[in-house]
């Protein structure tokens, strides 16, 4: 997942797109190490250092990773797409977000 996410961030730099994580690792220090090692540039909520932390529990997340794609209005548009499908879906929404901005 990391290389794909890195390439998305690179490809869509300066365009209306962001990756936001909700991280379930054991501690902030562990998360910090991963962020450094995997060159993760995107931001994550730290969800209490446990699987099934408060955020994941509120969202009913039972499997990791769980992926949602939200449009520029904050509406849920896709869930659990992967790979090329995910990328195409994001591309289309980014174009729509830019078009909406121009109006």
């Amino acid at each position: 997942m990391y290389p794909h996410e890195r390439s998305l961030v690179k490809k869509l730099a300066n365009r209306p797109f962001a990756i936001i994580g909700v991280n379930s690792d054991d501690s902030r220090s562990e998360l910090k190490e991963v962020v450094k090692k995997e060159r993760i540039t995107w931001r994550s909520f730290f969800d209490g250092g446990v699987i099934g932390g408060p955020i994941a529990t509120s969202w009913g997340v039972r499997g990791w990773p769980t992926i949602y794609v939200l449009d520029h209005l904050g509406v849920i548009r896709h869930k659990d797409l992967r790979g090329e499908e995910l990328e195409k879906a994001i591309d289309a929404l980014v174009v729509a977000a830019e078009a909406a901005k121009k109006k």
């Binding site: 997942m1 996410e5 998305l8 209306p16 797109f17 962001a18 990756i19 936001i20 994580g21 909700v22 991280n23 379930s24 690792d25 562990e30 998360l31 991963v34 995997e38 994550s44 699987i51 955020i55 994941a56 969202w59 997340v61 990791w64 990773p65 769980t66 992926i67 949602y68 794609v69 939200l70 449009d71 520029h72 209005l73 904050g74 995910l86 994001i90 929404l93 980014v94 977000a97 901005k101």
Partner: peptide, 16 residues
């Protein structure tokens, strides 16, 4: 999360 309105967001529940 709402700080990112205006952007398409890939919301990823993840762990290493």
């Amino acid at each position: 999360l709402s700080d990112y309105r205006g952007k398409v967001v890939l919301l990823d529940f993840w762990g290493n």
